[in-house]
Simulated assay, not measured.
Amino acid sequence: MIPDRSRTAYQESAAGLARRALGALRGTGGTAMVAEHVEQAEDPGAALAAVRILGADTFAPVLLTGEALPPQDAEAVALALTAFPPARDVTPAPPEGPEGPWVMAWRDWGTATLLALFDGGATGAPPTAPAPPPPPGAARSAASGGAEDWAGWSVRMGQLSTLALPALDGPVHDAARAAPLALARGATRAVLRRDYPTAARITRWLAWLRADGVSLALDPVPLAEHIEVMAGGDRVALDAAIARRLMAGG
């Protein structure tokens, strides 16, 4: 288990990296923001862990602004995946397996896939990702009894929001395409509960779907604007900013 002190250091470093990514997305940050985060950190280990925590969103400013990825950033992400290597075993999807490792496996897949895209595959093939969360109404595992509803499913999809980026597409994205109404209901529910981190994550999927040409029952533009006004924290602000960029044609 990770000691509480280390966990706190990782979370604080991840918040700092999210703040750098937000600045880069808004055009107020410097270049090579990932490499700078690692090089300037008092605890390089925590900084590398932060890169893995932020995951594919380390590439968000590049994907959404059209800027070139600094080679130092690619090296920093590769170093983080070396220091904290993704699991190579296929992780069973919940409820057969624990949710945490399953979510991390998908997030690692997104990070490694984008890294391979930007560095020409020099880092090797991305890790094997597990099965995606089947959308409500689709075939579900016998263990779940077919009882998983749109609320629980949308929250789980929100945990995979770092995959809601251009240049990423796969089974999780197909699951989002298959249930846009469930995501709209999930985002609305989170806002009504004032759970803005969850609302921001699910709204990213709605923004990705809109950019993908999917018809939605809910306009995600005012939703993202509301979250930006009401929520606090760098991570939530980054999610909302990514959503707005996706809807603006990023």
Rank of each mutant, 00 (worst) to 15 (best):
M1S: 14
M1D: 13
P3M: 07
D4Y: 10
R7G: 08
Q11Y: 12
Q11S: 03
Q11L: 14
S13I: 10
G16E: 09
A18P: 03
R19E: 11
A21Q: 09
L22Y: 03
A24H: 08
L25Y: 06
G27W: 01
A32D: 13
A32N: 11
A32W: 06
M33F: 15
V38L: 04
E39M: 10
A41G: 10
A41P: 02
E42V: 04
D43I: 02
P44H: 06
G45F: 04
A46M: 08
A49M: 01
V51D: 01
G55S: 15
L63S: 05
L63H: 05
T65M: 03
T65S: 14
E67T: 14
P70F: 12
P70A: 14
P70W: 10
P71I: 04
V77K: 00
T82H: 12
T82S: 09
P86W: 05
P86Q: 07
V90S: 15
A93I: 12
P95F: 05
E96S: 13
P98D: 14
P98M: 15
G100S: 14
W102C: 00
W102S: 01
V103C: 10
M104R: 02
M104G: 02
W109H: 10
G110I: 14
A112F: 03
L114S: 05
A116R: 09
L117D: 10
D119H: 01
G120Y: 00
P126L: 08
P130I: 07
A131L: 12
P135E: 07
G137P: 00
A139F: 09
A139N: 01
R140F: 15
A143L: 13
E148Q: 09
E148I: 07
A151V: 13
S154F: 12
V155C: 00
R156V: 09
M157G: 04
G158S: 01
G158I: 05
L160G: 00
S161K: 11
T162I: 08
L163E: 06
G170D: 07
V172F: 01
V172D: 01
H173I: 11
H173V: 15
H173F: 14
H173A: 12
A176M: 08
A176P: 06
A176L: 04
P180Q: 11
R185M: 12
R185I: 06
R189K: 12
A190S: 10
R194A: 13
R194D: 10
Y196K: 00
A200Y: 07
A200W: 14
R201Y: 01
R201C: 11
R204V: 05
R204D: 02
W205C: 10
L206E: 03
A207I: 06
W208F: 02
L209H: 10
A211N: 08
A211C: 07
V214P: 11
L216F: 08
L216R: 00
L216M: 07
L218D: 02
P220N: 04
P220M: 08
L223S: 06
L223A: 15
A224P: 07
H226G: 04
I227A: 09
I227L: 12
I227C: 04
E228Y: 13
V229G: 03
M230L: 15
G232Q: 14
G232T: 14
R235Y: 05
V236P: 05
A240W: 07
A243L: 07
R245W: 01
R245D: 02
R245A: 15
G249S: 03
